[in-house]
Write a protein that binds this DNA or RNA. Structure first.
Lengths: 128, 128
DNA sequence: TACACCTTGCGACATATGTCACATCCATCC
DNA sequence: GGATGGATGTGACATATGTCGCAAGGTGTA
C-alpha cells in the first residue's frame, strides 16, 4: 500500500537483488549497514509485512521474506511522489535523466517511464 | 537543520513566494489546501521554528514567519537526499532534467546544480 | 540428557508528524 | 463598559518510525 521509508527501502533493495531471505540474512546485509540490532531488523520486517510491503515465506524451515511488489512499481511510486509533491513536475518527465542510478537499469527505467505515464500517486500499481 | 516533511515544504513554498506571513495567512493559503484547522497550521509553524526551518518576525504587531533558508538551499538538500538514498545516483547529475518544475526557475536550478556539486547530505548549506 | 544457540512472540519506549481543542488575553466596536 | 473576534499559550492524543530487550520454544551436539 503505502510508500516505504528510507530504511524500508534499503530492505527492499536487498530483497529485489535476492529473495527470499531470512531475518538473519537481512540483518547481516542491510541491517548491518544501518547499524541495527537483530531486534530492530525483525521489527522493521514485521511492520513491512503488516503494511503489505513484504510477503512471508518459508526457507529451510525458517521464516523468510520477499518483496510484495516489483522494483519498478515501487520505485515509480517513489519517483512520482517526489517529482509531484516536492518538485511539482507532473507532466511527462525524462526518466533518461536517472540513467546513473545504481538500482535501476535501462529496462527497468523504461518500465517505470510507462508506469509514470498513467498511475496516479495514491493507487500505485499493484503489479507484482 | 533537518529536512522538511511534505507538509512543511508546502508552508515553505508559500513563504518563499511571499514573506513574512502570519499564521492566519498561511492557514488560508497552504493550510487550506491541506485541509488543516488553524490549530494544526499553528502547531506545524511552531515546530518548524523549533527545528530551525522558519524564523519569527513581527508584522503589524502580529507574529509572522519567514523561511530560514533559501529555496535553492532547501530544495538542493531534498534533491540530494532523494537522488542519493532512493535513486543511488551520487555523481554529478543533470539538473536540466527538472526544468519542468513549477517551483524552480532556470536561475534557481543553476544555483542548485552548484550546491549539489559540493554540499554533502548531512550538513546542507546554511546559506540564507 | 543438558547445554547452547537460533528463531519466534511480545512488549516497550522515544521521537517525529498529523491534528486538534480549550482557556486567555487584547484590541476594537457599539 | 461589555460583547466579539482574532492572536497566543498550552496541552493532548494517534500513528509512524527507530530501536531494543526478554522470555519461551526447538533442535542438534557433546
Amino acid at each position: 500500500m503505502s510508500h516505504p521509508s528510507d530504511s524500508e527501502l534499503a530492505i527492499l533493495k536487498s530483497l529485489w537483488a535476492s529473495a527470499p531471505q531470512s531475518a538473519r540474512s537481512l540483518h547481516d546485509g542491510p541491517g548491518a549497514s544501518l547499524g541495527w540490532s537483530l531486534s530492530s531488523t525483525r521489527t522493521t520486517l514485521a511492520r513491512m509485512v503488516a503494511k503489505g510491503l513484504l510477503v512471508e515465506t518459508k526457507l529451510d524451515g525458517v521464516r523468510a521474506y520477499g518483496p510484495a511488489r516489483s522494483k519498478p512499481a515501487v520505485m515509480a511510486g517513489l519517483m512520482r511522489r517526489f517529482l509531484s509533491r516536492v518538485m511539482e513536475i507532473d507532466g511527462p518527465l525524462p526518466t533518461s535523466a536517472f540513467t546513473g542510478s545504481a538500482v535501476l537499469d535501462a529496462d527497468e527505467l523504461a518500465e517505470i517511464e510507462a508506469l509514470l505515464a498513467e498511475a496516479d500517486d495514491t493507487a500505485d500499481g499493484e503489479k507484482t
